[in-house]
Write a protein that binds this DNA or RNA. Structure first.
Lengths: 332, 332
DNA sequence: TTGTATGCGTTATCAG
DNA sequence: CTGATAACGCATACAA
């Protein structure tokens, strides 16, 4: 037999469908006695609201779209956890769009906002132009968008992030305080907005301490690029005594390669990561790194989105980072 | 201005809404000339289908619900990646339900199937009873469900998994082949169906080799329980020379604790994990472990679901595992 | 406090 | 090949 509709419930309870609807949404407006009858009928039939019909009628989906570059990435997945919690607390459903960092794929998710599947979007990546393009923009402008983490200074949306340059500066500053004078930086991919920000922090720290030595190796946030960087480090005539990596994965790749190459961390070289992913503290040596409050970033972004939906005009949020001192760094 | 509807497009193209709809779904049924006019109007207006209306009318959402215990967990998130790919290839949207291993929370997602939000579900955990309860069951019975990984022998749904007992047996068998005679097992949580399966494999391997020594430590798949297990290992009068951990995380926790305790891996004790998560090979020492084809498991499950939706009655799928020999194990 | 009636944007049926 | 029209299930303005 088919799914029960509001009409079935109404018939069994001996009321109109309007009353049933009210019982579910504005229970105070209906007499206690009637309400009991209706709710009993609901239980009896196992009735559940048809969300498609509701969305159509209300012109809103109670769903939030989350666009993520790589859902398998531990950094993103923990942010997702925070979003999920805040979303379900607000009665919203989370729809995930995995782009695989593919432009066309990301573009396709823009339509989710347009076709009413979602009431707003959370972007875990620097939004591509499509999100603000014509003819998209004029209609999409009213759909709230919040960006997380990967955000530039003149960013077109409300955003939540940490101060990446300051965090990097703190990380490198710690190495300097430990007496390191030759400090390298393993960057992220050139295409990522964070790469420049973290690089800036690195340079600032060096400049602040009046250090000349500089070694900037190009990475891509992947473990393999960390390994590759180790080879380059090895090839240097004047080797650095410390390296600041743009994220934990590359740091781990670097350390793993070092281990196999007979180079000890931190005795021979200190290594600092970025993100404080789940495994950073179980790693051997436990990774000194910058902690980003991932779940909190997700939750904060969700709250911003809700505020925008509610008609407010909240400002972007800067969350605090923390330098986690562990075993991959040592005084020189 | 409001979102353009099919009516706007029809008016501009000078046709009926029926024709517009046909152009979008059955383009062959409409004259090329008319079609061009319509598509031009679509472009011009930036029209996109209202999915709520479509779902309502078609009584299907083109959405698949994925229920996951912990989205931040790297194991699950990689399975999600596989699902996402297969889903979007089939034109389906992936809706994620994160339960936090909370029964009430999981129950609430059952309704997604009932209220039409999703056409089917993929469960990344042993389904709790609610999925098959009355009055849920009678209606839900027609909604396809596929379970991934955590599946018992007399499981009520179609499932995709590896043979956990056989994999465990292979892992322990390798330790035995390396000459180990005292082999411990760090289990998963008692509540998880996989725990018993992996334990069975461990016991079988020991029995098969006629070994008496047995040490079964209770873990919970978390890093901390790996650390705790190390303390217990330490306290043994007759210490094992190898330990088979029910997953990689606990193995890493164990090794990290061992490292800090001055116990060397694999020189003093060999450690085997399970899952081959992303970081297993970057870990120091690189972790010997059982590889589960996570993305493939997700994709396979998605395909099974599609088959069921298409009216077929596919059988459960057993995917192959692989023993990855790396640096955390050595001959005794 | 409750009921009636309308429309949300599609798709599908049936004529033309 | 195309058009008119009736649902799909619900929420809400308006009446009673």
């Amino acid at each position: 037999m088919a799914r029960p509709t509001i009409e079935d419930v109404a018939r069994i309870a001996g009321v109109s469908i309007a009353t049933v609807s009210r019982c579910l949404h504005l229970p105070d407006l209906v007499a206690a006695k009637t309400r009991d009858r209706v709710l009993e009928a609901v239980r009896q039939t196992g009735y559940t609201l048809n969300t498609a019909a509701q969305s159509l009628r209300q012109r809103r989906s109670n769903t939030v779209l989350v666009v993520v570059p790589d859902i398998g990435n531990t950094f993103f997945s923990e942010v997702l956890g925070g979003i999920e919690q805040a979303a379900s607390a607000a009665g919203l459903t989370m729809l995930i769009g995995n782009t695989g960092r593919n432009r066309a794929c990301e573009d396709s998710y823009v339509r989710y906002l347009l076709n009413g599947r979602a009431d707003g979007a959370l972007l875990l990546a620097e939004p591509l132009a499509a999100w603000f393009d014509v003819p998209t923009a004029n209609d999409l402008g009213i759909k709230p968008i919040v960006t997380i983490s990967e955000v530039g200074p003149d960013h077109p949306t409300v955003a939540v992030s940490i101060d990446n340059a300051a965090a990097s500066q703190a990380a490198v500053g710690h190495l300097i305080a430990q007496g390191h004078r030759r400090i390298a930086h393993l960057t992220g991919p050139a295409s990522n907005i964070l790469t420049g920000q973290r690089l800036t922090g690195y340079r600032r720290a060096l400049a602040g301490a009046g250090l000349d030595y500089t070694l900037e190796l190009q990475g891509d946030f992947g473990v393999a690029s960390g390994r590759a960087a180790f080879a380059l480090y090895r090839a240097q005539a004047m080797r650095p005594t410390a390296i600041f990596c743009a994220n934990d994965e590359t740091a781990m790749g670097f350390i793993a390669a070092a281990h196999h190459g007979g180079v000890r961390v931190p005795q021979d070289i200190s290594v600092v990561g970025f993100d404080d992913i789940h495994f950073a503290q179980s790693f051997i040596p436990a990774l000194t790194t910058i902690r980003q409050p991932r779940a909190e970033m997700g939750a904060a972004a969700m709250r911003l989105l809700l505020a925008i939906i509610a008609g407010e005009a909240p400002a972007s949020v800067r969350l605090p980072f923390a330098l986690m001192l562990r075993d991959s760094t040592a005084a020189v």
